[in-house]
């Protein structure tokens, strides 16, 4: 059996709301350690991988590892029907592995709402990626910035064009774009430390200058999720997709991998 409870408006609910503009269906793996989710956007440009450790939930129980496909949009619609103060329970029993049961319980425990949501096939959303610690070392540059600043950069640039060029070297991290009506260049002089301060832009790993061109539509989606957190970590490599990461508690994360644009 798998069962988790959370308060209405918890971080899981906020994240599911924020990924909706990219993701319809997701593959969810549950283990005793926590709840992980993988999904591809419909254009297959973005791969989303997130892990919520069991300790971020009000209660969490998973007797046996299980994997299921969830129609995220339908699940979010159901979750929206909860009221302030409700405790939300998501449950799958071994006897019935065709749907999940979502229950809302009012704070005074006088009203309970049960809903069943059919599981779907989401096996195509599973991708084989390396262990994260192996993969992170392959990024040429990794920097952290306040997520509000990241969102502001993406919004400012999208006024001019659909693409952004992110360039990183020892001296500067820049976000720039050029369109028919003009150009925008936003430059940040980074701190260089392993312990980024919350309010600053910090270059944490640097193995050589790197630049990538990305579609701002996807970047704005990443920025939307990131604003649920203080800081966002961004990794660039010419051999890997751009990585945008937010940490959830000590062990949890949301990672977006965004395929860049390349010159023909």
């Amino acid at each position: 059996m798998f069962e988790l409870t959370m308060a209405k408006g918890s971080i899981l609910q906020g994240v599911l709301e924020a990924i909706l503009d990219l993701v319809n269906v997701a593959n969810v793996d549950c283990s005793s350690k926590g709840f992980s989710l993988q999904a591809l956007d419909t254009e297959h440009v973005v791969f989303l991988s997130l892990f919520f450790p069991s300790e971020v939930f009000r209660s969490y129980r998973c007797d046996e590892d299980c994997s299921m496909g969830i129609a995220i949009a339908d699940m979010v619609d159901l979750l929206r029907a909860s009221n302030d103060g409700d405790i939300i329970t998501i449950k799958v029993t071994d006897q019935n592995f065709e749907d999940i049961t979502i229950t809302f319980e009012s704070p005074d425990k006088t009203k309970t709402t049960d809903m069943d949501l059919q599981l779907v096939d989401a096996r195509s959303h599973r991708l084989k990626i390396s262990e994260w610690h192996d993969m992170e070392s392959e990024y040429q540059a990794i920097f952290c910035m306040p997520s509000a600043q990241f969102m502001l950069n993406c919004k400012s640039l999208s006024v001019i064009d659909d693409d952004v060029v992110i360039r990183v070297n020892e001296e500067v991290i820049s976000f720039s774009t050029k369109g028919k009506s003009g150009c925008v260049n936003i430059s940040h002089v980074p701190n260089k430390t392993d312990n980024p301060e919350k309010a600053s832009v910090t270059l944490t790993h640097m193995r050589g200058p790197v630049s990538l061109t990305l579609n701002l539509r996807y970047m704005k989606s990443c920025a939307k999720v990131s604003t649920l957190f203080d800081q966002v970590k961004i990794g660039l490599s010419t051999k890997l997709p751009l990585m945008v990461e937010c940490k959830i508690a000590e062990k949890g994360y949301i990672r977006y991998f965004v395929a860049p644009k390349i010159t023909e």
């Binding site: 297959h44 440009v45 791969f47 599973r126 579609n215 890997l240 395929a259 644009k261 023909e264």
Partner: peptide, 14 residues
């Protein structure tokens, strides 16, 4: 002109 790469260029399916 730039072309959009797909994520499958980097990660294979399980």
């Amino acid at each position: 002109p730039c072309i959009q790469k797909r994520i499958i260029h980097y990660f294979s399916k399980k």
